[in-house]
Simulated assay, not measured.
Amino acid sequence: MADESIRLDRFLWFARIAKTRSAAQAMAEKGTLRLDGRRIERSAAPVRIGSVIVFPLHGKVRALRVEALPRRRGPPDEAATLYTPLEIHTPKPVDAPEPGA
């Protein structure tokens, strides 16, 4: 079903990105998380298969594409199948010296 979705906080918790559901809610409501390019400030935002979630975690920016919607909070191996990590390219500063120059 294309219209099937899950709450953002539940996805973050089920996918083991957040240790607790309340930590997932705080992460979503902080305003630093983006869902499909939109800034999110509510934990009830719907996540669908194909959604892209971008958020800061442990000093780095992570981006994930949702591959499946979870039915439960399973073991880490099961949780890792729910999303694909995406690579984020950081632009090189304009005034940075060229390598080898």
Rank of each mutant, 00 (worst) to 15 (best):
M1Q: 10
D3T: 09
E4C: 12
S5N: 13
I6S: 14
R7D: 09
L8E: 06
L8G: 13
L8C: 05
D9R: 00
D9Y: 00
R10G: 01
R10C: 14
R10T: 14
F11M: 01
W13S: 05
W13A: 07
W13D: 02
F14I: 05
A15D: 04
A15W: 00
R16G: 08
I17A: 08
A18M: 02
A18G: 09
K19C: 05
T20L: 12
T20V: 07
T20W: 15
R21V: 08
S22V: 14
A26M: 15
M27G: 12
M27I: 02
A28E: 09
G31H: 01
G31Q: 02
T32Y: 10
L33G: 00
G37E: 06
R38M: 07
R39P: 00
A44V: 15
A45S: 14
A45H: 09
V47D: 14
I49R: 08
I49S: 12
S51D: 10
V52S: 07
V52C: 14
I53F: 00
V54F: 04
F55G: 00
F55C: 06
L57T: 09
H58S: 13
K60I: 03
K60S: 08
R62H: 03
R62F: 07
L64A: 09
E67W: 13
E67N: 01
A68I: 08
L69Y: 06
P70G: 09
R71M: 06
R72D: 03
R73L: 07
P75D: 05
P76S: 05
D77W: 01
D77E: 12
A79F: 06
T81S: 12
Y83R: 02
P85K: 13
P85I: 11
L86D: 01
E87H: 15
E87V: 13
I88R: 10
I88D: 01
I88Q: 03
H89L: 15
H89G: 11
H89F: 01
T90E: 12
P91R: 10
K92L: 10
K92I: 15
K92S: 11
P93Q: 02
V94I: 05
V94C: 09
A96Y: 02
A96E: 14
P97Y: 08
P97V: 10
P99V: 04
P99R: 09
A101H: 11
